[in-house]
Design a protein around this nucleic acid. Structure first.
Lengths: 108, 108
DNA sequence: GCAATATAGTTTGCACTACAAACCGAATTG
DNA sequence: CAATTCGGTTTGTAGTGCAAACTATATTGC
């Protein structure tokens, strides 16, 4: 298992991907949300959202709980501690990239 | 030619890609830089940088000029007007995503 | 002066992945 | 009870980011 094989600027693709960045950022404020909420928020197809959630879950960034609400299935997605840490770290790195991208490099 | 085929949150993958985001962000401050400078800055292999620059050039976000400095070839990369606009817009959208991601969506 | 090494890139092949479309089962509606 | 809706999962594919292999010129060692 590769930890975070030094992407440029340390930006983890798993988090950086637009759809997942939206999902994680929203979850870091909401704590949890259901499938359809995220579907509308991110503007994805269901299939698409499903596979993004698989990846986030596989990486331990979210937990997916399937339960019944009345008689209907309902999928609840919750952000984990390391999920929250990952988004926050990601935004920090983006800030660094934006504002300190040239530090330590000689001007050409 | 597709303008910007509605990615989630309007984030253009061409700009969003970490290596290219670094390159464009740096160029938007420096105006121009040479190949090797960008190579070190982004921490890419030469091959990799070359193909990223191809894509940015094809999209009209940068201009690539090959010239001689003394007897050695030297490749100068310059950001274009629309390149600058694209990065700035991209950072704006990231800000929106980060701070207003939940606007207009009902809480679950 | 010519072999070896360095510099400055480009081309190529592959492994991954984001996406839409197809699919599926259960519940609800007409 | 047939059709539709809801809530998802699986599948096939096109695209792309990457490293490695390659090329061409310049420099250095002997």
């Amino acid at each position: 298992m590769k930890e975070n094989a030094e992407n440029p600027a340390g930006l983890d693709r798993l988090v950086h991907e637009p759809a997942r960045l939206i999902i994680l950022t929203a979850l870091s404020e909401l704590e949890s949300a259901d499938f359809l909420f995220l579907l509308r928020l991110a503007g994805l197809t269901k299939g698409n959202l499903s596979s993004h959630l698989d990846k986030l879950e596989a990486a331990g960034l979210v937990e997916v709980e399937k339960r019944f609400v009345g008689k209907k299935t309902n999928t609840l997605i919750r952000i984990t501690g390391s999920g929250r840490a990952a988004v926050e770290e990601h935004w920090r790195r983006l800030d660094d990239l934006r504002h300190r991208s040239l530090q330590g490099n000689p001007r050409p």
